[in-house]
Computed example of a mutant assay.
Amino acid sequence: MKFEKIVNDEVLVKKPHKIEWQIIWANVIIVIYIHFTALYGIYLTIFYPIKLWTFIWFFAVGIFSNIGSTAGVHRLWSHRSYKAKWPMKLILMIFQTISYQGHIYGWVRDHRVHHKFTDTDADPYNARKGFFFSHIGWILVHKHPDVISKGAMIDLSDLKQDCLVVFQRKYDGHSLFCRSKFNKCLFYHRSISPTENAVVSFISCGEGWHNYHHVFPWDYKAAELGNYKLNIATAFIDFFAYLGLAYDLKTASAKIVKKRALRNSEIN
């Protein structure tokens, strides 16, 4: 049995086949180490007195690294949903670096491939391979050949002209690289598998409205109606826009969203 999927006017034929995983043991060890140290940190927090500054530092690093991923490498560099002046870009580059998700150039390349070839073998974190693979398993194995071949076709000229991206790529020593992706669709379009998740949106500073994002990837809010109560990254961008450091913020109007929802409800 096989099926065809049309992605950006290109027909991709997917045939069931047995995949021989080539494990990257260095990444496996790093992931295990990170999670064990996290558990150890929780243990110390519960059974030993922790200084207030430790808590403040923990939350600050967590929020800043999330903003580097969401407002920075995702919405600014991957989707160009808004523009930023160099002071803001420098801050976002630093925040993204401490997130330990690899350099901006590689992050953007894989994410653009993901949007162009969603849920095919060319998708780096293909959800059809399971929940674990799409969340973390994909960084523990070598990429599918389709990811590499299709990735070479992606236009990254804008990144090559960005001095901050070039600088970070040259000197960044991180090899580990992971992000989140979800499995099922709740609204807008049944052919798009990413789902909406308020809890994840809160934890990731506003990246849980994934089905909306796949319909309108160019919206700087990455969420319908902004969802400001859960979308810290949007508030961060708006604050810098107020300062004049972010501009040309792209967003889908309520009329466009309603029209798209009605059209998809008729199709489905």
Rank of each mutant, 00 (worst) to 15 (best):
F182P: 06
T97Q: 08
F95C: 03
D155S: 08
H74F: 07
F58S: 11
K170R: 14
S204A: 13
G106Y: 07
R128I: 13
L12G: 00
P16E: 11
E196T: 12
I34C: 14
H111W: 02
Y228K: 07
Y247I: 06
I94T: 11
D155H: 02
D238K: 09
K184N: 15
I154N: 04
N183R: 14
N227A: 10
Y247G: 04
F59D: 11
W138N: 01
D9V: 06
L245I: 13
Y125C: 01
N66C: 10
W86K: 09
Y171T: 15
V166A: 08
C185H: 10
I29R: 15
I23W: 14
E224D: 12
Q168W: 03
L44I: 13
A84F: 00
I63H: 06
A222W: 01
I139G: 08
V13I: 09
I42D: 08
R112Q: 10
K83C: 08
A222N: 07
D121M: 02
L249C: 06
I148N: 05
L243D: 04
S157W: 07
N264M: 12
H210I: 00
R179L: 15
D146I: 03
V147N: 00
D219H: 05
F187V: 13
V165C: 04
G206C: 04
Y48F: 14
L262W: 11
L44Y: 11
S78K: 03
K51I: 14
K129E: 03
S180E: 11
I24E: 05
W25M: 10
T97P: 08
K85A: 05
Y212V: 01
T37P: 09
L76H: 02
L262V: 08
L140I: 05
L76A: 02
K250P: 06
L76D: 00
V141H: 01
G206V: 00
I192C: 06
M93T: 12
V73G: 07
F202P: 07
K5H: 11
R112Y: 02
R190S: 11
G106R: 05
L262E: 14
V7Q: 12
S204G: 14
I192S: 01
